[in-house]
Amino acid sequence: MSESSQLPAAPIRTMISPGRYVQGKGAISRLGEFLAPLGSKPLLVADDMVWGFVAHEVEVSLNAANLPTNRVMFNGVPSAKEVDRLSGLIKEQGSDVIVALGGGSTIDAVKAAGFASGIRWVTVPTVASTDAPTSALSVIYTEDGVFEEYRFFPKNPDLVLVDTQLVANAPAAFLAAGVGDALATWLEARATHQAFASTMAGGLPTLTGTALAKLSWEVLWENALPALDAVRENLVTPAVERVVEANTLLSGLGFESGGLAAAHAIHNGLTAAAQTHGLAHGQKVNIGSLTQLVLEGAPSAEIRDFVEFTTRVGLPNTLTEVGLKVDDDEDLRRVAEAATVPGETIHNMPFDVPVGDLTSALKSIERLSRGIRERAGLAEPQPYHAKH
């Protein structure tokens, strides 16, 4: 064996992305046009609520493209059982492309089923609440809603289509949750870059992936508040278009090719606390972002600005707002233990994060955020009550 063949492979930098991204007011009316090149027997997956407000335009669009409208129900949680059920329907019906219409849960289940079945997959998010639509991975939960695993795929969706009027018609809380998910993108990408760690794309971050993560952050700080005001009136404005793109495309590319770190690991840990199960993904991620800033010993001005901004956006930044308390020692330690298991993205931080340090950081955000909010004249945190 030659000396060179014994050397470890040099690290690579890589970036991945969906095949095509389409965004605009009324874009769903063109779904058939963009779907036709991908397959002739689509399987559409949507829950009853989503199907109720997209069915007409989808049917008209697919009919114009000479595609059948074959819709099946999504059962609510992207669990292994649900993925297997959808895979069975794909095989039974001979589908050659599967389409997710809805939020992140529907999208994660559809991506996993599409990959398992060896067919193409398409995401049509009806809210801009996560960056799941663009990525080559699914987050799989137990049927009780507890994080179970990431499933990674060798490709991204073939098409991502976002109708910004649908996003504007949804409650503003969904867009706010997407802002919470997307704000974490830059915080985690810069930590990954500093740690010389690998990304979800399977290599070191590219300059492009890191730059897109930062651009997502900058777009949100400039546009999130006016966009939320517009969406409260069901209006599509330039600010709404920018925030939808930041929440979906920029954050999706940024997290996947820029890297995840503590914020999303803490989100996954929070799913181990039953009190948080009614919260949106981006709400839990925002707790993770603030806790990551504390772990980093970030400048007080950066932490102050983050707390003030996310409070104005309507995101939680205290334990109280996610149903926890500082003296919930057992629950918080369980969260910290789940967030630091081997393989979790918290290990992309440029320093080790022991369970005890993370537990302390989580506890610290309550008094920290309350003080910042009080000095800024912002609303006092209100207790969160789980929906079950």
Score class of each variant (00 low, 15 high):
residue 193 H to F: 02
residue 237 T to K: 08
residue 301 A to T: 15
residue 185 T to N: 13
residue 212 L to R: 04
residue 335 V to P: 12
residue 53 F to P: 07
residue 227 A to N: 08
residue 223 N to D: 11
residue 5 S to R: 13
residue 196 F to G: 14
residue 214 K to N: 03
residue 21 Y to S: 11
residue 235 L to N: 13
residue 61 S to P: 09
residue 320 T to A: 13
residue 234 N to R: 14
residue 223 N to M: 06
residue 225 L to P: 03
residue 116 A to W: 00
residue 331 D to C: 00
residue 170 A to Y: 13
residue 121 W to Y: 15
residue 37 P to G: 09
residue 348 N to I: 09
residue 110 V to C: 04
residue 115 F to I: 08
residue 90 I to Y: 06
residue 187 L to E: 08
residue 357 D to M: 02
residue 330 E to M: 00
residue 263 A to P: 09
residue 321 E to F: 01
residue 112 A to T: 06
residue 224 A to P: 01
residue 369 S to G: 01
residue 248 T to Q: 06
residue 273 A to G: 01
residue 220 L to M: 13
residue 372 I to D: 03
residue 365 I to N: 03
residue 181 D to E: 03
residue 234 N to V: 01
residue 231 V to W: 01
residue 167 V to E: 03
residue 328 D to C: 09
residue 218 E to V: 08
residue 168 A to H: 03
residue 217 W to V: 00
residue 81 K to I: 12
residue 81 K to D: 14
residue 22 V to F: 12
residue 53 F to R: 09
residue 144 D to G: 13
residue 38 L to G: 12
residue 208 T to D: 08
residue 27 A to N: 04
residue 89 L to K: 15
residue 324 L to S: 09
residue 60 V to N: 07
residue 94 G to F: 01
residue 243 V to I: 10
residue 78 P to E: 04
residue 73 M to Q: 15
